[in-house]
């Protein structure tokens, strides 16, 4: 028996069709938009479509969470970062530096799709029902059923995720801070910052955090070599970076 869309009632079928198309178009839009802001907006569109499909499948609570957390928080975070780093930073989407990458990506994607389609024709033994409980037919609302399962059977994972969230928040703070590893700027660095105005970088840091380019690193090192023993004095400037020699620890 081949399942058919027409087997569904008209409202259900229509809902699925419209929401599915919205989700698909949104997905394609994320990938194909030149501007990252547009991508983010397309992502919201896709998420909304999926949220509708959640509702359609009796997962009302998750649909709400989807809209609030994903569309409301996460995508906003994305937009925030886009703005922070500069909206104007866009990639040349037409060109591809790695020649085979795009071709192979599409090819592999199609292959994977074909394989999934092949496999989906089979019926799979799924084993015993989980301990989570029935989703429908309990006489309770979706939120009730979900909440009950979450706070009884899945209490420990739930608590663990809360710990994970806290860790993520702390991690984000640590990552987003200005990279001042020591207790503060040394006197020399402070002086250099006043003199040069640009952010302070030394050769070691350039190496450690991923240099913009090898050439810049070499230049910085050459500048350091020229500087000789003048510790703490600005020894050179490249592309807005003031290079100083750190005092020996």
């Amino acid at each position: 028996m081949t399942p058919h869309l027409l087997a569904a009632t008209l409202p259900d079928g229509l809902t699925f069709a419209i929401a599915g198309v919205i989700a698909l178009v949104g997905s394609l839009g994320v990938v194909l938009s030149r501007n990252p802001v547009h991508s983010a907006l397309m992502l919201i569109m896709s998420l909304f479509g999926v949220a509708v499909l959640f509702v359609e499948q009796d997962a009302q609570f998750l649909a709400a969470v989807q809209v609030i957390v994903y569309a409301g928080a996460i995508v906003v975070l994305f937009l925030f970062v886009i703005m922070l780093l500069g909206v104007d930073r866009s990639e040349a989407i037409a060109t591809e530096p790695m020649p085979a990458q795009r071709l192979m990506a599409v090819g592999l994607g199609i292959l994977a799709l074909v394989e999934i389609a092949l496999l989906s024709r089979e019926r799979w033994p799924l084993g015993a029902h989980s301990v989570a409980g029935k989703a429908r037919g309990t006489g309770h609302s979706n939120v009730y059923v979900l909440g009950r399962s979450l706070f009884t059977t899945y209490l420990l994972p739930f608590e663990v995720t809360s710990a994970l969230l806290v860790i993520a928040v702390i991690g984000a703070i640590v990552l987003a801070r200005r990279p001042r590893t020591s207790a503060g700027p040394t006197e020399g660095e402070a002086a250099a910052a006043e003199a040069g105005g640009g952010p302070l970088v030394d050769a070691g840091e350039l190496v450690g955090s991923g240099a913009p380019s090898a050439e810049r690193r070499v230049e910085a090192e050459e500048a350091l070599a020229r500087a000789g023993d003048r510790i703490g004095e600005p020894v050179g400037e490249q592309e807005g970076l003031t290079v100083v020699r750190r005092p020996e620890q």
């Binding site: 698909l24 994320v30 795009r102």
Partner: peptide, 19 residues
């Protein structure tokens, strides 16, 4: 499955980290 594949291909094709 289609959405997943679109996402995967997008990951491989796009260069903007945020995208």
């Amino acid at each position: 499955a289609v959405m997943f594949t679109i996402g995967a291909v997008g990951l491989l094709v796009r260069r903007n980290v945020l995208v």
